[in-house]
Design a protein around this nucleic acid. Structure first.
Lengths: 111, 111
DNA sequence: AAGCGTTATGTATTTGTATATATATCGCAT
DNA sequence: ATGCGATATATATACAAATACATAACGCTT
């Protein structure tokens, strides 16, 4: 079945900062409380997930995710209020664009 | 400088059919009258451009581009009226989405 | 101090995509 | 019939991105 799809992201001088990948990752971290588990659930390598969080935190004045190592349970990951806010805003943007494309005629032109 | 960027495309069961690449390619073909030249202008390999046109034509009831080989000038490429229509529709969609994202708040959240 | 599960980090391997290269084909003009 | 510039097509190579793997460090609990 044919469909129009979209992707949106925030970039800084050509470097991708925040997009669908980070958005989903943060949601999973919020749910799992662990970067290791979140990455596993997404079928993403831990390294990729870790690098992603570093890039995100380094490019925002406030961190989006706080990683803690050691301790009783070995450590964990916590999404900050700011992180949740970014996710909510991104979801909103994505939804508005999706609503928009549903009012388009492009699809009719390609069999 | 931070900015929101978007990409939209038409896909069929996960297979990408039409997006920014094909859109630009068709415009260049229309301008140059030749697939070879259009690919060169875009810095795209001829093979990639040729494959793209095949996929496009095979997935639309009417062809978007007609390739002619042989003849006085060796051949050439012509964009059909239908092809131009698709390009116009895609440009319109892209513009509407761009207008939409300029009214968003996501950017303010990421430093 | 021992154990646990997690974060932290670098390196090697694999995978997939893009490109380069080479060659064949076509058909009109001269 | 020869030359030209374009399309047509397969294969080999190069490059980039993702992943797998291995290992260290951490700090709380018992």
């Amino acid at each position: 079945m044919k469909q129009i799809r979209i992707k949106c992201w925030v970039e800084d001088d050509g470097e991708k900062l925040f997009g669908p990948g980070p958005n989903e990752l943060i949601k999973k971290i919020h749910k799992e409380g662990s970067l290791t588990k979140a990455a596993a659930v997404m079928n993403m390598s831990y390294k990729k997930a870790w690098d992603m969080i570093q890039r995100l935190n380094q490019n925002s004045e406030e961190p989006l995710v706080i990683l803690k190592k050691g301790g009783y349970h070995g450590g964990g990951a916590e999404v900050t209020a700011h992180g949740l806010e970014v996710v909510a805003e991104y979801d909103k943007l994505e939804k508005e664009i999706t609503d928009l494309i549903n009012r388009q005629d492009l699809l009719k032109l390609l069999k």
